[in-house]
Structure formats: structure tokens, C-alpha cells
Amino acid sequence: MIPQLVTIRHRRPDGRWRRRYVPVLPVLLLLAPLLLIALPVGLIACLVVRVNPVAASRGVGQVLCALPGTRIEIGQGGKALLISVR
């Protein structure tokens, strides 16, 4: 199952949190033309470095399926960032 929503929270300078929601499907549809360009480039890159393209695409698919439930937290000083994938 691919991720459906990415939530990005960051702390503002005044200490309050700002939350942004990014739906994955509309972004994916907007970037589809770029994906059509990236596919042959990735295939050529696999052939250049002698990696099986089927195995590489399977690995990318497994990474995408593992993304839901991922949380990334970064903090330094008064700044903080939290990224949650659902």
C-alpha cells in the first residue's frame, strides 16, 4: 500500500507549531510526466552499473510500501521538524 498523506510540522520562531498536509496521490499525478522521463533514465543507469532493472524496481517498490507509519524527527536548538507518513 502506498502512502496516502504526509504531515509536515515545524516549530515557528515564536514557539508555535505549524502543520501542513500533503496528499500523495495528487502530487504523484502532477509529477507523472517527470516519472515517465525518469523511468528510461533509471533503466539506462541500471544497465550502466550492471544492476538487474527488475530487482531494482522491486526494491524501490518495497521501500515505497514500507513508508506508511514512518516518522522523521529533527531538532536543533529552537527549531524542530516532524515528518509523518500515513
Rank of each mutant, 00 (worst) to 15 (best):
L29D: 15
S57Q: 07
A66H: 02
N52T: 05
L25Y: 08
T7G: 04
V51N: 05
V54Y: 06
H10F: 03
H10E: 03
V22T: 11
N52K: 15
R20K: 02
V63N: 05
V22D: 09
G59S: 12
L47T: 02
P68G: 11
L36M: 11
D14F: 09
P53K: 10
L25H: 12
I2H: 13
G78W: 15
R71G: 13
I44T: 07
C65R: 14
R12L: 13
P33E: 14
V63E: 07
L31F: 10
V48P: 03
G69Y: 02
L5W: 00
Q4T: 14
Q62T: 07
P3F: 04
L29G: 11
G77E: 03
W17F: 03
A56P: 01
A38N: 01
V54S: 09
R20A: 12
P68N: 05
V48W: 10
P68R: 00
P53T: 01
I83A: 11
L64T: 00
L36D: 12
R71Q: 15
R20C: 09
G77H: 11
R11D: 00
V24C: 05
G42V: 00
C46E: 08
Q62V: 08
L35M: 07
L82I: 11
L67I: 09
L31V: 07
V51A: 05
L43G: 13
G77L: 10
V22P: 04
A66L: 02
V49H: 11
G77C: 06
L82D: 06
V48E: 03
A56L: 12
R19H: 03
V60H: 13
C65S: 11
V60Q: 12
R86H: 08
L34N: 03
L29Q: 15
L35V: 05
L67G: 10
V63K: 13
V85F: 09
G69D: 10
